[in-house]
């Protein structure tokens, strides 16, 4: 596994991520498009945060930055005490694989692979042995209620089932933070509720959870709601 300059550490209640004056802008035909402006954000270990805001306000951009898929144009971002902007591409990949679990609105499963194989992907890149990874993938598939569908392809599953596979996949390396970008956005309310229930369970088990949502029910279930508007944090509230 790729050596990080400093091990990522955490204690209960201590900040797991700490952003100061983080900006993100794109150069579009000479003019600068500011997508995130001076974001100051601290999230503690074990916290359950919802991010809300109108379309185009920069929610996904922020979440991608938290998940080390993207780097800030300006400002500091400490993840578990580690300055992210100083890391190279390989180290960011390692952090994503080992410490972050992504859940996407459109599930993002690989069509050619079956349930088990999809769940195994993050372990493959962490060098987990084949037997070990199969065992763990199966446990998680059973946990999200897909024990009977291990060999199924994503196209043979309902949306809710696909999202459960994605959740199992996000959990497989036992990540520090789970990031979900509108996880119920493509689901009907019944399946959405199932997903929400799983997420709440994860929170109860002590996972740090950051969820982008337009759904007030989900926002209500979170401990803290951050509202973005045009790249600013407009307001924060604790439930």
């Amino acid at each position: 596994m790729q050596k990080l300059p400093k091990a990522i550490e955490f204690k209960d209640g201590s900040p797991i991520l700490d952003m100061k004056q983080v900006c993100k802008s794109y150069q579009l035909g000479g003019s600068e498009l500011k997508v995130l402006r001076d974001i100051d954000l601290t999230i503690k270990h074990g916290e359950y945060t919802a991010i809300m805001g109108p379309s185009g306000s920069g929610k996904s951009t922020l979440l991608n930055m938290i998940g080390c898929l993207d780097r800030p144009t300006n400002g500091n971002y400490l993840l578990g005490g580690q300055e992210v902007s100083s890391l190279d591409d390989d180290q960011l990949s390692t952090i994503r694989g080992a410490y972050i679990g992504f859940i996407f609105q459109s599930f993002n499963l690989i069509d050619q692979l079956n349930v088990i194989e999809n769940i195994e992907i993050p372990m493959y890149y962490q060098g987990v042995s084949e037997q070990e990874s199969f065992k763990r993938a199966r446990e998680l598939a059973v946990m999200v209620g897909l024990g009977e569908r291990l060999e199924h392809k994503p196209s043979e599953l309902s949306g809710g089932q696909q999202q459960r596979v994605a959740i199992a996949r996000a959990l497989v390396n036992d990540p520090l933070i789970i990031l979900a970008d509108e996880p119920t956005g493509n689901l009907d309310s019944a399946s959405g509720n199932e997903i929400l229930k799983i997420l709440l369970d994860l929170h109860k088990q002590g996972k740090t959870l950051i969820v982008i949502t337009h759904d007030d029910d989900i926002a209500k279930s979170a401990e803290r709601v951050i509202r973005l508007f045009d790249g600013y944090i407009q307001k924060q509230e604790y439930n």
Binding site: S93, R96, G97, F102, N108, I110, P122, Y125, R169
Partner: peptide
């Protein structure tokens, strides 16, 4: 392309 993005998000390095 999408598969590549997924793999990268799940920890694949460029080399992988």
């Amino acid at each position: 392309t999408r598969e590549i993005g997924i793999r990268r998000a799940l920890g694949a390095k460029k080399r992988d």
